[in-house]
């Protein structure tokens, strides 16, 4: 059953990216163009998501265990270190250059756009390099 949940969560997430238009790099770049022609939509996507997640996380964490598996399994890393900042700077630069972050990039594979597929291949190569050289924070 938890396999089905993984698939369903992915589907709902992907539909959310389409409805919010975050799948479109132009919308994202519009948000980042704060000092030019600014499109504030992305901020509303985050607010929409957070008004659902923050109260629900609070309630769900009170449960002894999740419904379909034996225990909660998520990062409790609280460390604020150089890797957190350096990684975020690199990500921010790539995000600003392409207008794509991992979720929308992977979702847009569905549109068979050669540019976004190339982005995804390159992104996975980046994931692999971090694993290979043990750089993750």
């Amino acid at each position: 059953m938890n396999k089905l949940i993984s698939l369903i969560s992915g589907i709902i997430f992907g539909i959310g990216l389409v409805i919010s238009q975050m799948i479109n790099p132009e919308k994202v770049l519009g948000f980042l163009d704060l000092f030019g022609n600014w499109d504030p939509s992305l901020a509303f996507v985050m607010i929409g998501a957070l008004i659902i997640t923050s109260p629900m996380f609070h309630l769900i964490k009170k449960k002894e265990k999740p419904l379909f598996v034996d225990s909660f399994n998520y990062s409790k890393n609280k460390e604020i270190n150089n890797k957190l900042i350096i990684g975020s700077v690199l990500f921010g630069a790539g995000w600003g250059l392409g207008g794509l972050c991992p979720g929308p990039a992977i979702s847009s594979i569905a549109l068979l756009n050669i540019n976004s597929i190339s982005f995804v291949v390159s992104m996975f190569f980046g994931f692999y390099l971090v694993k290979l050289f043990k750089l993750s924070s």
């Binding site: 957190l84 690199l90 921010g92 790539g94 250059l97 190339s118 994931f127 692999y128 971090v130």
Partner: peptide, 13 residues
């Protein structure tokens, strides 16, 4: 950009 996003997101977790 893809390479930067791949590296950056994994380095920062």
């Amino acid at each position: 950009a893809g390479l930067l996003v791949g590296l950056g997101t994994r380095i920062s977790g």
